[in-house]
């Protein structure tokens, strides 16, 4: 029986997203839907999120009109689909410091936040460079960092230095340095509690956008193909992807890319009345299904 119930919860989407960004290389292969989602885990007395999403109040209109992000719903409405309120969230793993992953810290007033030290260190360094290097710091919102400082002041922001096992029971984090961002982090949930058990799930953040990053597009000749957006290197993205895949014995579906629309057909899922997908990856003992 699983220790944690796990859901991937869509909160917005870009309906037509260029495939060439999801995967480095295919320049003329059209668009796919890119869901925006975060992961909810419940179990062992904890209610945990992997990433927070962004704050629509701050830049929702700009995102909607200029970037085609549609159907945004805040965490109160989204988490309610699983019977959870933002105030219930006890811990949040921030996979990286982009606005769409840590832009809603202030909406989780009781949570502790975990982020990689190098994500902050190198960002501070990159900001000392002259404006022509601004690609390296794009996607960040000063208000998010100020909110992170406020959380730190309250003892709710915890910096992790590299890989760390059992940050919470059965949950390990791993640094994927110089990949999508300087200090991107992926999260492993050992859902049977065993060190080398088989019921393991990896939450990839933006290290991959789609299962195709792990398999390539030719089933006859599988290969790892990195995403098309990185401040680090494709080399590091490939090897971190390989590491994630290896840790789950090569079982592709156990490496979860939250931006993958096919999660809804890979796992049990349902469409809410707001048009958002709820994907159910695991159910802990005593937990009721939210997709049945």
């Amino acid at each position: 029986m699983a220790d944690y119930s796990i859901w991937v919860l869509e909160y917005a989407a870009v309906e037509k997203f260029p495939f060439s960004v999801m995967m480095y290389g295919p320049q003329h292969q059209g668009t796919r839907k890119l869901p925006y989602a975060y992961v909810l885990l419940k179990g062992k007395g904890e209610t945990i999120l992997i990433d927070t999403g962004y704050d629509h109040v701050a830049y929702g209109e700009q995102l909607a009109t200029a970037y085609g992000v549609s159907n945004y719903h805040g965490p109160r409405a989204v988490l309610a689909e699983c019977g959870v309120a933002p105030e219930d969230v006890t811990s949040v793993f921030i996979t990286h410091a982009h606005f769409d992953h840590m832009g809603a810290i202030h909406l989780f007033p009781n949570a502790k936040f975990y982020v990689q030290k190098s994500e902050l260190d190198k960002w501070v360094w990159a900001l000392t460079l002259s404006p022509e290097y601004r690609f390296l710091t794009g996607g960040g919102d000063p208000a998010d960092i100020v909110r992170a400082v406020e959380a730190a002041k309250e003892g709710r922001m915890i910096c992790i230095d590299g890989d760390q096992a059992d940050v919470l029971p059965g949950i390990d984090v791993h640094l994927a340095a110089d990949t999508h961002t300087y200090g991107s982090m992926y999260v492993t949930v050992r859902n049977d509690g065993a060190r080398d058990g088989e019921d393991k799930w990896v939450f990839a953040g933006d290290l991959i956008y789609t299962y195709d990053n792990l398999t390539g597009l030719d089933p006859e000749a599988p290969q790892i193909v990195p995403i098309g957006l990185a401040v680090g290197s494709q080399h590091n993205l490939i090897f971190s992807s390989a590491q994630m895949l290896k840790s789950v014995g090569g079982e592709v579906r156990r490496v979860i890319p939250v931006h993958e629309d096919r999660l809804r057909t890979t796992f049990p899922s349902r469409l809410t009345d707001k048009g958002l997908q709820v994907v159910e990856i695991a159910l802990a003992k005593g937990e009721e299904s939210r997709v049945g």
Binding site: V14, K16, F17, P18, V21, L34, Y36, Y59, Q62, L63, A66, Y67, G68, V69, H98, F99, D100, R134, F135, T137, G138, G139, G140, D141, P142, A143, D206, Y209, G228, L229, V231, H259
Partner: peptide, 19 residues
């Protein structure tokens, strides 16, 4: 006077054409 450079965000790589 927008504050976030969305060019690095995963939603926004298609933005130049849209803008």
């Amino acid at each position: 006077f927008e504050l976030v450079d969305f060019g690095q965000a995963c939603c926004a790589a298609h933005a130049p054409q849209r803008l």
